[in-house]
């Protein structure tokens, strides 16, 4: 399976990344390199093996349901580009 320029464009859009036409060709080559590697991996017979969900053989440690976080709005918003009335402001989202 090879990724063409059109698919690179779609992936870039989904990932919210801007890609120039020149970069697209380069990216498509890079992605195809990775896919080649995956194709090689896929030749291994994995029938009957439970798919891995995590790189380590560990389980999720659970947290007790306690509120320990304090309000840090002021320090968080100090680095935000724009805020008003406690809200973060972002370019308008049209619905």
């Amino acid at each position: 399976m090879a990724i063409n320029l059109e698919q690179v464009g779609r992936i870039a859009r989904l990932a919210n990344i801007e890609i120039s036409p020149g970069e697209a060709a380069q990216t498509s080559a890079a992605l195809n390199g990775i896919l080649g590697l995956i194709e090689q991996l896929q030749s291994v017979d994995t029938a009957g093996i439970t798919p891995m969900a995590h790189a380590q053989e560990v389980a999720q440690r659970l947290r007790e349901d306690c509120v320990t976080e304090q309000d840090q709005r002021e320090s968080f918003q100090a680095v935000a580009p724009e805020t008003e009335a406690g809200l973060y402001l972002v370019p308008r989202v049209i619905e």
Binding site: C66, V67, T68, E69, D71, Q72, R73, F76, G86
Partner: peptide
């Protein structure tokens, strides 16, 4: 729950904006 799914910030409804949103 009292706290969020993945953090220890409060879930109480109606608080001042962004006062219950931790890192």
């Amino acid at each position: 729950t009292k706290s969020k799914a993945f953090s220890a910030a409060a879930t109480k409804y109606g608080a001042e904006p962004n006062t219950q949103a931790c890192a």
